Simulated scan of single mutants.
Amino acid sequence: MSFGPRIKELRTAKRMTLDQLAAATGSSKSYVWELENKNPPRPSAEKLSAIAAALGVTVDYLLGSDSQSLGDAQDQAFFREYSGLHPDTKRQLREIAKTLGGKRPT
């Protein structure tokens, strides 16, 4: 899947509108539409990073230049965000993960 359709698929899966993704990335609605629909898109590295963060994936996943799965991309994005958290928040998340780790989904 190419860059534009990948952004659109992730955006719609998160139930985000073009306006919402544009606001989250400091872009205009028309710019996000162009990224999703024009070929080839030419976003800056800064915009790529902002879009990846807003969609909860890595830039590599957006670009399709990596063989990583969506789950792996989401995990990496989560761990990057986690690393910048306050130590107390990290502790709380570790406790939650430990509690949830003992439970199996039904």
Score class of each variant (00 low, 15 high):
36 E>I: 14
36 E>W: 12
36 E>H: 12
37 N>K: 14
39 N>G: 07
40 P>N: 14
41 P>L: 12
42 R>L: 14
43 P>Y: 04
45 A>G: 12
47 K>C: 08
48 L>D: 11
48 L>E: 07
48 L>H: 09
49 S>P: 01
50 A>G: 06
54 A>H: 04
54 A>P: 02
54 A>M: 01
54 A>C: 09
55 L>C: 08
55 L>V: 04
55 L>Q: 10
55 L>P: 02
56 G>P: 12
56 G>H: 07
56 G>C: 05
57 V>G: 11
57 V>M: 03
58 T>N: 02
59 V>D: 08
59 V>Y: 06
59 V>C: 06
60 D>T: 07
60 D>L: 12
60 D>F: 03
61 Y>P: 03
62 L>T: 11
62 L>R: 09
64 G>H: 13
64 G>V: 14
66 D>F: 00
66 D>Y: 03
67 S>F: 05
68 Q>C: 13
69 S>Y: 04
70 L>C: 03
70 L>W: 00
74 Q>T: 03
75 D>W: 00
76 Q>K: 14
77 A>I: 01
77 A>D: 13
77 A>Q: 13
78 F>C: 00
78 F>R: 07
78 F>N: 04
78 F>H: 07
79 F>V: 05
80 R>C: 04
80 R>H: 08
81 E>H: 07
82 Y>E: 03
82 Y>H: 02
82 Y>I: 01
85 L>K: 01
85 L>V: 02
86 H>K: 13
91 R>K: 13
93 L>H: 05
93 L>I: 15
93 L>R: 12
93 L>Y: 01
93 L>W: 06
94 R>P: 01
95 E>P: 01
95 E>Q: 14
97 A>N: 02
97 A>G: 09
98 K>T: 08
99 T>S: 14
100 L>A: 10
100 L>N: 14
100 L>Y: 01
101 G>F: 02
102 G>Q: 08
